[in-house]
Design a protein around this nucleic acid. Structure first.
Length: 673
RNA sequence: GGAGUGGUAGUUAAGCUGGUUAUAACGCCGGCCUGUCACGUCGGAGGCCGCGGGUUCAAGUCCCGUCCACUCCGCCA
């Protein structure tokens, strides 16, 4: 290998002892490749075929990992501008791209802040020449410390798409801090690898600027929340993670107790009761940015562990909680993305939301509405409409252009929500109605329909005749689809909306009983407690949800603060006195000792960050998220545990669970007693 | 629990009504290259077509099952 006997090579090679006596770490990918060569072809085959044009080189001799050796980073990779010209700087980061011209070598160095172009030239001082020679060995994702001079790029060579595009760092000396295997997917925003891979190598996915930016913004939002609430006298107080299972609400995650065998803690679905007890304690104003756990199935915006901004205050009415909450959201949006939300958020009752939008979290960025037309067709000749428990229509301007296939697709879409089909009328340019059903309508029905909906040429009207929940769900969700289809949604708009006057209770057909819609500590509106027994579905709660762009980002209520009212509430929910005592006795007890009127709200931080970043998935705003099956592909959690651990907890697995547990890996077996 | 979409080199994808040796781009390895910026150029390596059955002379392709990821319904006070 003649080139490596040159002085330069020898010098570079001799850097080895400088690496603090540590053994060099070779690129393991290259290592595996070698082994593979041995299996298949021989190494001599490899070298003879390739070494035709020039001398083969082994760059591994340059891939000696070095210590920082006292080097200190002077700037991050998004910092240098023309203002820094001539300065000697030290950058540290990952190799994003290399452009090796044989002569000049360009390396774009990346850290979480951005990119800086660095140049290695074979000219200049001997150190710089040597730095250039060694730089041939640099590969993508290697970790380097580069020291050099900030220079203006030559005339016409600036890159306006880079923040640091005016300058480059002319490298005089560099250290290889670590090598990297070839990453399983490119660390770049513009390439979208399979989510499975991204989750397995999450730490690489997070190197991509888009995800790193999301986490940086998430931090900004969290700090903004803390500043705002602190300025209003809210105390950040931690509450237990190992707590007590409560019967209402979502499924709990359970943690077995070793000390009390057969007993379980539950992870909190929210710190609800604790924050109320902090009010009883007289701490007056509480907040916490806190993990909550619900063992339910996942969605694009739902993870089994998620983060709430949990807030509670003493002596408020709805106006004070909502005013504080509006200020919080306005502050966060202003301080993170510079968006100005309205000075006062509009409000809508739950009933109006369901009537006009079919959902309890309307996206009010666009105008389409549902209209009740049941009365028009009641007792009429078209039996499907006449006999429907609920009949609503939605007029869509411009919908005439929808193709038959699109309408068929929408028909399939609403079937998801239990609809049998989807009726429609197109209003053609000559004002004639084109529809499979209109022949069943009387002239009077047609006239009334046209008038109520304000039908004009170019429209399509969709109908849903079904039970009220099916009608609302199918048209309400179709509305969102059509909003997208017709470009009605301003993606840059932020449309907050309070939804108020929620029902206190809702009927659970499965359990055949009334359950709290919000939670069982929510106060009914004045006078409503007395009517619960006679009309459980009619009682309204002092509850409010904050909806932003059709996403529920927060919800809260004024709480019950007297023991008598809380007992009545449990009675209404069909929770027997002894059960209430067992499950919530400590709360009722606490309310006896001068609990102040109190109320609060909790925001879904993950969902807020989704909106702030435009993320389509909650996984893109969480550092280490779970899959839809609630597993972690990186750590392989959940997993089996040693039999000893189970024994200590007094736990025996049932048959089916044992089958899963049988797949214990050898090293895990070792740990067993 | 249910419905749908996807799974083919390291990655992203193509592969039609089943039919030669499974294709491309990027990446990887090596040669050349002093102004690139997703550098260029020449050469090379790289495949349990998710897994298991079945149909067939023949399966990446058809059928059944199964696993994984995603979206949705149920569920999520």
């Amino acid at each position: 290998m003649p080139p490596s006997t040159s002085g330069l090579r020898r010098k570079a090679f001799d850097l080895r002892p400088l690496a603090s006596g540590r053994h060099e770490t070779r690129n393991t990918f290259r290592h595996t490749r070698r082994i593979r060569f041995r299996k298949g072809m021989t190494m001599t085959d490899q070298t003879t075929t390739a070494a035709t044009a020039g001398e083969e080189r082994d760059y591994d001799e340059y891939r000696v990992i070095q210590d920082l050796g006292g080097w200190v980073r002077s700037h991050h990779c998004n910092q240098l501008t023309a203002a820094n010209l001539g300065q000697e700087v030290t950058l540290m980061g990952w190799v994003q791209f290399r452009r090796d011209h044989g002569g000049l070598i360009f390396i774009d160095l990346r850290d979480r802040e951005g990119l800086t172009q660095t140049v290695f030239s074979p000219e200049g001082a001997p150190e710089a020449v040597q730095a250039h020679e060694r730089a041939h060995s640099i590969r993508i994702e290697y970790v380097c410390a580069l020291r050099g001079i900030v220079r203006a790029r030559p005339e016409g060579m600036a890159n306006p798409s880079m923040a640091t595009g005016e300058i480059e760092v002319y490298v005089t000396e560099w250290k290889l801090l670590n090598t990297s295997d070839t990453p399983p997917f490119p660390i770049e925003d513009r390439v979208d690898a399979a989510e499975m891979l991204r989750l397995k190598y999450r730490y690489l996915d997070l190197r991509r600027p888009r995800l790193a930016k999301n986490l940086i913004l998430r931090n900004k939002a969290a700090q903004s929340v803390r500043r705002y609430l602190d300025s209003l006298g809210f105390l950040e107080i931690e509450t237990p993670v190992l707590t007590k299972s409560t019967p209402e609400g979502a499924r709990d995650f359970l943690v077995p107790s070793r000390m009390s065998q057969g007993m379980f803690y539950a992870l909190p679905q929210s710190p609800q009761i604790f924050k109320q007890l902090l009010m009883v304690a007289g701490l007056d104003r509480y907040f916490q940015i806190v993990k909550c756990f619900r063992d339910e199935d996942l969605r694009a915006d739902r993870q089994p562990e998620f983060t709430q901004i949990d807030i509670e205050m003493s002596f408020p009415d709805e106006e004070q909680v909502m005013g504080m909450a509006e200020g919080l959201i306005r502050t966060v949006f202003a301080e993170t993305i510079g968006a100005a939300l309205p000075a006062s958020f509009p409000r809508m009752t739950y009933k109006q939301a369901m009537d006009d939008y079919g959902v309890d979290k309307p996206d009010v960025r666009f105008e389409l509405r549902l209209t009740d037309v049941k009365d028009i067709f009641a007792g009429g000749g078209f039996k499907v409409f006449a006999n429907a428990p609920c009949l609503k229509a939605m007029r869509v301007p411009g919908g005439l252009e929808l193709s038959r296939k699109e309408i068929d697709d929408y028909t399939e879409f609403v079937k998801i929500y239990g609809a049998q089909g989807l009726a429609w009328i197109k209003v053609k340019e000559d004002n004639e109605w084109q529809s499979p059903i209109v022949k069943f309508f009387s002239d009077d029905e047609k006239a009334k329909l046209a008038e109520r909906l304000g039908m004009v040429p170019g429209d399509i009207v969709f109908f849903q005749a079904a039970p009220v929940d099916v009608t609302n769900a199918s048209l309400g969700n179709l509305r969102l689809k059509l909003g997208e289809r017709f470009g009605l949604i301003d993606e840059k708009a932020y449309a907050p909306l309070w939804v108020t006057d929620f029902p206190l209770l809702e009927y659970d057909p499965e359990d055949k009983r009334w359950v709290a819609k919000h939670h069982p500590f929510t106060s009914p509106q004045p006078g409503q407690m007395d009517t619960i027994a006679s009309d459980p579905g009619g009682a309204l709660a002092r509850a409010y949800d904050l909806v932003l762009n059709g996403s529920e980002i927060g919800g809260g209520s004024i709480r019950i603060h007297t023991p008598a009212a809380q007992k009545s509430m449990f009675q209404a929910l069909g929770i027997a006195d002894d059960e209430a005592e067992e499950k919530f006795g400590f709360l009722i007890e606490a309310l006896k000792f001068g609990a102040p009127p109190h109320g609060g709200i909790a925001f879904g931080l993950d969902r807020i960050i989704m909106i702030l970043t435009g993320a389509k998935s909650i996984r893109d705003v969480i550092a280490f998220p779970k899959t839809q099956k609630a597993t972690c592909l990186m750590t392989d959690a959940p997993n089996v545990v040693a039999k000893k651990q189970l024994r200590e907890l007094g736990i025996a697995l049932r048959e089916k669970a044992q089958e899963n547990n049988a797949e214990v890996k050898p090293e895990e077996k070792k740990n067993e007693a």
